[in-house]
Every structure is written in C-alpha cells, then in structure tokens.
Design a protein around this nucleic acid. Sequence first.
DNA 1: GGTGAAAACGGGCGGAT
DNA 2: ATCCGCCCGTTTTCACC
Lengths: 149, 149
Amino acid sequence: MDALDRKILAVLQTNARASLQEVGQAVGLSSSPCWERIRKLEAAGVIEGYTVRLNAQALGLHETVLVQLTLDSHTDNTLEKFGETLAAIPEVVEAYLVSGEYDYLLRVAVKDTRDYERLLRERLYKIKGIRHSKSSFVLRTLKKADLPL
Amino acid sequence: MDALDRKILAVLQTNARASLQEVGQAVGLSSSPCWERIRKLEAAGVIEGYTVRLNAQALGLHETVLVQLTLDSHTDNTLEKFGETLAAIPEVVEAYLVSGEYDYLLRVAVKDTRDYERLLRERLYKIKGIRHSKSSFVLRTLKKADLPL
DNA sequence: GGTGAAAACGGGCGGAT
DNA sequence: ATCCGCCCGTTTTCACC
C-alpha cells in the first residue's frame, strides 16, 4: 500500500467503472500495473467490492431516520441476537454499537413516515429488551463522502 | 422503473462490475436490454455513479466517531456556511441536519483517537457558533447495507 | 516493479422479430 | 421493447526490461 495504490483507490472511489487506461493515466502508470495493483488490493481485502451509488429519492425512499437505542442487557448473546435481528431488516442501512449514553445508532431508510411507523411498531418494538428509543428524522443530508485517503 | 429495473439495481449493488451478460442472466434478460435499462437509470439520475467498497481498517482508519452538534444560530446562511465547512473536511464522511434535541449528526473516520483529538481541536472547535458537541465512539459496526429495493 | 504487445473478452450499436 | 450478431475498445496475460 503505497501512494500509488491510494491514488488508484481515489480514482475508483469517484468512478469504479473507469477503464484501466483511464486509471493508469490519472496515476501516471500504464494499464497492466494498474490491473496488477487492483488485483492485489482485492486479494488483500482493501477493496471489498464494487457498488452503485443510488439516489434514494428516486427510489421512493423519501425519509431517513436516525434511531438511538438502549438495550436492557449487554451480554455477548444479546449483542449477537440483536445484530442478527437488524441484519434481517432491509430498511436498516447502518447500525453501530457506540459508547456514550445510548447503546446503538441505526440509520433507517423508508418511503415515508407511515412506513417508518410500521417499521417501528412491527419490527423494532418487537425486539425484546429495548429499554429506550429515540428517533431523529433527517431534514437535510449535508454530506455523503468517500473515505479519506 | 419496474421490477426488472429494481432487480438490475440489486445485482449492481452487490457487484457493480458484473458484466452485462451476468446481470442479464440474473434478471432473465439478454445483455442489450440490460444495457439500455442501465443507461436510462443513469440518465434519470437513479444511478448516481459507481464506487468501490473499501475496508476502513485496512486503510488505517481504525476509529469511527459519531458527533452530535448543536449550533447557536439556525439561519439559512449559517446552515450553508456550515455545510461548506464540513465539505472541506475529508474525515467527515456523512453529515445530516436532523430534527430533535441536537441539530447535526456527523460520522467521522479517523486513524486513531489522537487523530480525532486533533480534528476536534483544529477543525470542528474552530467553527464559529457551536453551542454544544457530543462524541460517541463506534465500538462495533453491526451493519452496513445497501439501500432496500 | 515497470512496459508493450497479443489474445480473449465484453460493451456498444445496428437491424430483425 | 427484447434478441442476435458484428465491430471495436478493454481486460488480462505474457515475454522482456
């Protein structure tokens, strides 16, 4: 992982479909060594995969909600079960176990507030051991950036 | 945007580098209409671009911090200036204006706690008009998923 | 670790159904 | 609107530096 690798990653972050020649040109290399480096970055697990950046609005996902959760118990078992439960809820896009006054933060993407109410009632509140929950609706997304390199 | 388009998007979410033939096979179409549909989804802005999923750990970004911020003022001007300031800080990966008891939530990716302390001192605390801030360190990432389709 | 060229592959566009 | 096939660019390999 040298400076050239980071440059390559930066290019791929902005356009993962750039041809190897474009990548090479951008970093000052020909296509073959670029390909070799990318292959190694994939093998090393630095590159986990390639995705598409989608417009949530265009897909009808008009509301994003940030949910703070506190659980009753904090055993290994609880954490694992909770993780599995969240994994099964497609609307839960991100989930973090955090330090501080609450335990978990979720980012949830839903069609509208009615959809969120249903999710809360039928999915989240059905989870055993939730002591407390607080929902904050996203009013505006100010930034959504790639990882700093 | 029909069911086929959603299927195509689902395939691209898991692997944006899948060949058109692979995508076609997965959705039950040949490559040409797939390409046509993808082109239209790009033109319509549903597909905003293609990125690479990177392993933050492997890049030396060992800490993720969720920062709650409250500002003094809430005018249009304040919001805009604040947005521009955040845009210039590469470690700020996500930033939301939210409803509730605090105003903004940031997700910040840094090398370590020392790095975060520097960011806080040299960048965030330099922002005029911050009334309050609260940092929560991510102890475990439970989920990082694509948008639900 | 880099280049450059050759072979294999897939994307991009026509015409037919 | 989907399929088929042709052509050209790109990916991937390989011998050489």
